[in-house]
Design a protein around this nucleic acid. Structure first.
Lengths: 196, 196
DNA sequence: GGAAGAATTCAACAACGGTTGACTTCTGCT
DNA sequence: AGCAGAAGTCAACCGTTGTTGAATTCTTCC
């Protein structure tokens, strides 16, 4: 096959963005360890050296690729007070984040990489322990089991995300957000404020 | 440091078992990709060549390491008919499997490797789609949403396992099985037979 | 028009990790 | 006592991967 010409390409190119897009897609699909600089370069149609030129190390590329355009914690602000409404609203918002393609790709990149990239694992841990759990704790019934309640909700939400977006169970995957909110929302309300 | 003497060691040794034990521990702790033959050999105090001598490829070693002493699907037989009892009993049994150290190590090895080892991913998929989901489906209320109900339960259970054994949320991790059964069991019953 | 700098590829390096053939030592059997 | 075979280590091979310095080409500015 014909070799690529050397030197700068004519015209204006957004090669760095193409590299980032390729990185995001492959990190989401294969995880950190199984994604190579060469594979990313091939998908972006550049030389592997250019990846390093723009992003430095593979690690730095990963960080740039999974940078969130929106802070997921912000979706947790201003939740209703009504116990019956909290659960459905919470589920709706979490699914709302995940159903945005640009967020989903990054989050899947994070999750898929958490086992082979300590930074990803750390970031997810922070999102959970400093992001989600305190909010859930504040929403929970003010008995002496608020933390317990918060962790039960976190587990339920984690399972929902794994089922729908990671493992991809068929009905969970193609269900509408409304159906999921209808079925899982009341359970979340129950965990938060119901009788356990 | 002094070199290891060459040739067979005196006396009887269970070196193959030591290699397997090291493999189990490291696959559970680091996952397939981040566990090297050399690290396993070092932990078993043998030469990497011996690992290949006994087990062939890394792949074959992994398969041997995560072989279950008990078929997890067998724990799902003979569940009660009473809708209120199904959920707690199901949770109790699943936790019973996971709380056995020899099972937990293998299951964590599976989960931790699912992202970097296709065989592990496939086995987990099979356990889910051919093991757990059909059983849940049979337990579910016979409306036209049995599969939906089954997947909701699978998601809830997956979240519980991730929360307690993989991520290790503090209260979920140290909670007694009884407490978890008490809190999550009714939710599982609800998903299976309640009004959604 | 020419120079500087950025954007690109080339070629190769170093390290890692899975694997293998050769060699050594010990056990058990004849 | 000697031999065969198993249990071991040694040393190195090979492929892959992340990374780097050098070289080439294009754009922009003076």
């Amino acid at each position: 096959m014909t070799a690529k010409p050397r030197g700068r390409r004519p015209g204006s190119n957004d090669t760095a963005d193409q590299i980032l897009a390729a990185a995001r897609e492959l990190f989401a699909e294969r995880g950190y360890a199984r994604t190579t600089i060469r594979a990313i370069a091939a998908q972006a149609n550049v030389d592997p050296a250019l990846v390093h030129h723009y992003f430095g190390t593979k690690d730095a590329l990963f960080d740039a690729a999974v940078q969130m355009p929106v802070d997921p914690r912000q979706v947790m602000s201003g939740l209703p007070d009504d116990p019956r409404a909290i659960g459905p609203e919470l589920v709706r918002r979490v699914l709302g984040v995940w159903d945005r393609p640009e967020m989903q790709e990054r989050l899947r990149g994070m999750i898929g990489s958490a086992l082979t990239h300590e930074g990803a694992a750390e970031t997810l841990r922070e999102m959970l322990t400093r992001g989600l759990l305190p909010v859930l704790r504040d929403l929970a019934l003010d008995d002496d089991r608020r933390d317990w309640r918060a962790e039960l909700v976190a587990a339920q939400m984690a399972g929902l995300i794994v089922g729908r977006y990671v493992v991809g169970l068929p009905r969970l995957r193609r269900a509408s957000s409304a159906d999921l909110v209808a079925s899982v929302g009341p359970v979340v309300s129950h965990y938060l404020t119901g009788r356990l």
